[in-house]
Amino acid sequence: MLFSKNRISKIISIFFPILFLLLISSKPIPPIDVIIEFAKQSSIPGMVVVNLRVIPLVEHSNIDIQIELPEKLKLLSGTKKWNGILEVDKTETFQYQIYIPDSKTYELKAVIILKMITGETVRREETLEINPVAKKNEYKKNHIKEGKDRGVIEFKGE
């Protein structure tokens, strides 16, 4: 066993430069990771495919998944409500085919509630914006390059 740890140390020393780059401290994350996105480039209006990826990171006794659609959107395939147990640290993908009738802005919301084996629950909501309103950028004035390596982004502030 001692040999095993020494071997690990050697491996670490060999790959230390790579590992060093990986030594970053990321922000805390909740016990369940959720990502909702279009499965591929979609033409709107029309039928789109949306993937909801759920990754439970802790042991749990149940997960509730619910999709909330605006009234005008039609769910062509996929289950609006699901509950059960998923494998920890494994990604489970739920796929939905949705018909979007026009080019207005809509929000597709996924609500996920994970119940831990200790009885505590974690609620996550993730929203996918469909045809999001373009961000106003008229306030952005310009981007100036000054001297050596110094750039300044100027926003109108008056």
Binding site: K141, R150, G151, V152, I153, E154, K156, G157, E158
Partner: peptide, 13 residues
């Protein structure tokens, strides 16, 4: 700064 190392600012007219 942003991803290109440019600093942000607000400016007057």
């Amino acid at each position: 700064v942003n991803g290109s190392n440019s600093i942000y600012s607000v400016v007057s007219d």
